[in-house]
Design a protein around this nucleic acid. Structure first.
Lengths: 202, 202
DNA sequence: TCAAAAAGCAACTAATCAGTTACTTTTGTA
DNA sequence: TACAAAAGTAACTGATTAGTTGCTTTTTGA
């Protein structure tokens, strides 16, 4: 194989292995040797491609955060048209979080570590939600007295929290809240709650 | 000083130092030497009082979880009487979380580590909320078609999430969401959302 | 085809850390 | 007061870990 491609492949394999390990055990407990082993790559290659353990970590974060952009673009493309729009936003976000479990975990680790490396991707998402709500207000489809920032924050947090406390609450309730059926129930509940709040009084 | 008291004091100092350190950096990054230094105690004392690093950790968790019981007892003592009850539950929970930042962080660390040591305290809290909502339904003060479990879960998660993602969202929004004023706004928002959802249609 | 450059590797190093040991000081009690 | 038990201490140990070094293999281009 060509040298450039080989090198790029190694880099890719390192990033994938690092994402799995950093997201599952966090930065402090992650072992560089474990990343190398999982990637099927010599440890030195990690230092050849990235400066340090922190270097790999921030590269992983960048990669993972960037995936949110796709969802953000979807949200930005929506026109606020009422209940249906909210349903789509929530179910799209749930879908994103379901298919990106390492995003959820890395956000949480980052948060506990004082958000050392927050990227712009999550900021854009909030802005997109705010703009959407605002356009809803202008069209008279959303209550005019709404605090747009708080509401956008809530939408984000309420969806996210269905994932972020999964383990503890699953143990407490004695059922797997990560199961598709439970998550669907949760998405529906969050959507209904939201609609009840943001739609103008009839 | 008396031997028993001296020993108990040392144990206390260790637990306090360990709580600060475990909650701020998590189990993996916490250093036993750092706990000893912060407690102003010889490292060996940690091993004299607790078996191992894990031993101290689980003792800390037990201590911290037990503080939730007080709030749980408050909730259990309430009678559902409508909007005012919801307001009190939310503001009491916010008050608890504000004055117990290490509870929030330890719950999050635990969650990321697969909830190794979940205790009964959080379970009792959920049960209390469910019972309260149920009694509201029976009195006709709460919508009868409510999914009590989902709603209790939401109440819990929505309050908790105001704290759990503070760092990342503070950075994104460029303001300190941990400030009292911001938290008060958030509590009010959550309360209003909740009321809109659970109260029966007029 | 062949040398230079890039990629890959195994073995090493210095630092860090959980846990231990062997010892001294303090305290309670007979 | 004397002595045994408990509390406290400092220095050590073995294992682990991030990061390095010096070497071999593979690939590229003239």
């Amino acid at each position: 194989m060509e040298q450039k491609k080989k090198s790029a492949l190694t880099r890719q394999k390192i990033l994938e292995a690092a994402e799995e390990i950093f997201s599952s055990v966090g930065f402090a407990a992650a072992r560089v040797d474990a990343i190398a082993e999982r990637a099927g790559v010599n440890k030195q290659m990690i230092y050849a491609h990235f400066e340090s353990k922190e270097g790999v970590y921030s590269a992983v974060l960048e990669r993972v955060y960037s995936r949110l952009s796709e969802y953000q673009d979807t949200v930005a493309s929506y026109e606020f048209e009422g209940a249906e729009t909210v349903k789509r936003i929530v179910s799209d976000y749930f879908a994103f979080l379901i298919s990106n479990p390492s995003f959820v975990r890395l956000m949480l680790w980052e948060n506990l570590n004082g958000a050392r490396y927050v990227q712009q991707a999550p900021a854009a998402l909030l802005d997109g939600l705010k703009a959407l709500l605002q356009s809803g207000i202008e069209k008279g489809l959303v209550r005019a007295d709404l605090d747009v920032e708080q509401t956008a924050l809530s939408l984000n947090l309420f969806c996210f929290s269905a994932f972020s406390n999964q383990y503890t609450f699953s143990k407490l309730l004695g059922k797997d809240l990560g199961a598709r059926k439970e998550l669907a129930k949760r998405a529906e509940h969050v959507t209904q709650m939201f609609l009840g709040y943001i739609l103008p009084e009839k």
